[in-house]
Design a protein around this nucleic acid. Sequence first.
RNA 1: GCGUCGGUGGUAGAGUGGUCAAUUACAACAGACUGUAAAUCUGUCGCCUCCGGGCUACGAAGGUUCGAAUCCUUCCCGGCGCA
Length: 401
Amino acid sequence: MSSLKFSIEKKLQQKLGRAGILLTPHGAIHTPAFVSVGTKAAVKALTPEEVRDLGAEVVLANTYHLYLDPGPGRVKNLGGLHKFMNWPLPIMTDSGGFQVFSLGAAYGKGISKVTQITDPSLMIAERSSEDEIPRLAKIGQDGVSFRSHHDGSLHYITPEKSVEIQHDLGADIIFAFDECTSPTETLKYQEEALERTHIWAKRSLEYHKSKGNSERQALFGIVQGGRDEGLRKKSAKYISSLDFDGFGIGGSFAKEDMSTAVRWVNEVLPEDKPRHLLGIGEPEDLFMGVENGVDLFDCVAPTRNGRGGTLYTHKGKINIRNAEFRDDPTSIDSECQCYVCKNYSRAYVCHLMRAHEMLGGTLGSIHNLYFIVNLVKRMRQSILEDNFEKFKKEFLARYLH
RNA sequence: GCGUCGGUGGUAGAGUGGUCAAUUACAACAGACUGUAAAUCUGUCGCCUCCGGGCUACGAAGGUUCGAAUCCUUCCCGGCGCA
């Protein structure tokens, strides 16, 4: 019996997209929805009230980071994540699988979640000559050893360990431990990694079921498979054969590969369970995901960009620190209804950023999160109103200028 | 007036004969960021450039030297001490 109830209200014609409602023990998520990222039990620079007031329905925290500090036992003893961080609405936790990637294969390289591949030879990369740059994560068949980036201590995370930590943290939706691979890995490596991810998925699920937490916490399995259609479909088929409550779509992408990967997977996944595209969140990617049947997204982009001064507007991104905004009395985005746009000028936010005032990061985050959360809400609305295509076309025409 | 210390690029502040167009920090100008090693990181930052280099620069003017931001002389300016 799942702790979630997912219902689809409306589907896109001839497409995989749909609008629905996902009911969790801490309330409803209207899908498609954008999940705000709060890695260390905090959406950086924002209070939970600010996150809620800007319209967010759900946040995602990170297992690896919270495991290192303050520790799952402490969070559990303090009443679980909801109480600990004073966020009464739905919470998800990522399994630490992304850190296998970001602290492992991607460590010290120019590889990120989405990489623009300009040189195709990069795609054939080498898992090469061990090891110019020492990594903080090393993958074994049974789990992953991490070297803590702040005190150097060694930690071993297995699928069981990850789920155990996530049980202690107590989020509504938790994820199976997976290996997020770099798109530069060879097909052979992708196959090996996928095999591992599948074994880990099964072990995550078995551990989860054995603990009886399934009444309060839902477990999502993660589909991997890189950029290969065969592997992606194989993964979607296998993961959906297991009794997960929903699915994550993982991987690091070359930008141009993302939409095909998502479509391949969602053509296979069962329609009646929610799908979460992990770590994706630029506007054009959100349209792509929604159109291809994604229900949930999370991404650090709005908050990370917001703190640094890159702000979303309907006419594209602007860097509010730029000199041209120093005397600009208008709002960040004349079409935006967020707290920041209703109350502050570009000039003021520009000043705050330049002055390194903390409020700058806060206002930037509020605006960006509102912009993205609201954008996905409008996509949802447009599905319900049968004008998704029109909305998408009009939005992107101006956004991508 | 005498003595003394000092005057370096937007600022602070290194450098005390060549490897100096000058460490570094800040400021300035721009860029990056997609399950957060991120309130972070990167580039540019005298002028010109066919990006090979060229030119003008370390208070001012002279001088010593193959070579000076660095040594000498005078002057200008500032701090301090003594009158």
